[in-house]
Nucleic acid binder design. Sequence first.
DNA 1: GGCAATGTGTGACCGAGATCACAGGGGCAA
DNA 2: TTGCCCCTGTGATCTCGGTCACACATTGCC
Lengths: 248, 248
Amino acid sequence: MPIPGLVKLAGPYGLKVIGSCLTCVMREEGIFCRLSPEALHELNSIRRSSFYPQGAVLFVDGESPRGLFILCSGQAKLAASSREGKAITLRQAERGEVLGLSSVIAGEPYPVMAETLVPCEVNFIPGPEFLRFIRNHADVALRVAEHLSMELHKAWAQAKLLALAPNARAKLAQLILAWGAGQGKPAPEGLRVPFNMTREEIGENIDATRETVTRLLSDFRRRGFIRIKGGAILLLRPDCLRTLLEQD
Amino acid sequence: MPIPGLVKLAGPYGLKVIGSCLTCVMREEGIFCRLSPEALHELNSIRRSSFYPQGAVLFVDGESPRGLFILCSGQAKLAASSREGKAITLRQAERGEVLGLSSVIAGEPYPVMAETLVPCEVNFIPGPEFLRFIRNHADVALRVAEHLSMELHKAWAQAKLLALAPNARAKLAQLILAWGAGQGKPAPEGLRVPFNMTREEIGENIDATRETVTRLLSDFRRRGFIRIKGGAILLLRPDCLRTLLEQD
DNA sequence: GGCAATGTGTGACCGAGATCACAGGGGCAA
DNA sequence: TTGCCCCTGTGATCTCGGTCACACATTGCC
């Protein structure tokens, strides 16, 4: 039986539990984390913490907006799919980001679906309570606007990636370079990026099939631009990848 | 010589001048129009009205965010282009919408460029003044969040249109249906939609070339789905267009 | 009038990438 | 071990739509 008030250290799926917004280590990074003490207290009181395994669906396309989801730890993707089964991922969300925010604000159905990519700790906030919260705290509304601006810019970046790139090779190069810029760590031979997506998932990011992703990655490897070794991808020649972005 | 305080009725480019937020006929529709009287007064004092001809560029991709532009009348497009000259329009903005808002909020360069499609009356608000304004008026921040949510949903819809449609035919059908839903007026034979884009501009909306747009429109016309007569397009069989969305 | 600029229609060709088919190969549980 | 499932690699083929080329219409301007 859990002792009330005591924060457990090991949660489901082997996650380290964060538990409270007040003691969260993420407080520097997350958009909703840097708030005034009162706002943070109120936020902490209306949030409901839960844990999801990999592959859990937080909400689906077309569902009316129950509320929003704060990704305290883990990763998730926002995706859409056509009726014929073609799927595309519109954005990857990292910890600290908020999912479903725009739908709650606009009062419209979620336009995309959200799915966890790894085990995640998620805080759920019901829509009506969040709207009440935001109306009471002017600083929160501005934070919300900032987060939505970031989301909008990422959405446009994705649309530009999809439509403006001359071919699939450029799209894949750009994706890999973005990984490098985002989470790459310097290594003796180049940038090292953790890498655990399947070719199919990569394809859903750049609107290409599994087979072409396979062929292009082999091509990059053959040309010495990258090296792939279980769980990580090594960017040996980011400069060469960059030249692929524009040339046909 | 203009008489001070007297609102002119005919402006440049044959536009009817709106002139003041307080007397604007748009006050029902625009996001920034339904505000408290004090907020509206302050907004009216920091805005600067100007008029642009067709094809004027309000800001370009990569420019640091001087401020935001309220589209009082007219239409504009948000577009991006690659260095090789390929262009794509990401969104059409109608009167009442705000351009550049997300960049001012986020303090990041405009990620797209904005260009007027017809002569427009535009209110410019410098970024710093707008940020001061928004911090003083909690209700405005919420409006901003609502507008950004709308923009985000439209951006995702555009990305889905581009990536999920099985072919160019489906993309064009979807675009035409969207026109019909947005600004179509019932006519004896079907929905009548004003239509003054070139095939090339249509192509930039659906990521296709001028030639394929020509071929597809001819195809739709031959099959009796639409009729095109100078300045308007008549949707004769929207149901048939809808069947094209999914089938290959 | 001529003439340039711009938008449109159409055919011929071709190439990137989707699709289909099949062969490994690694992890995992029974 | 066997079997199953999922991921991966690779060849053969097909097809949509891009590219090129050219004819024609319309408009506006000198």
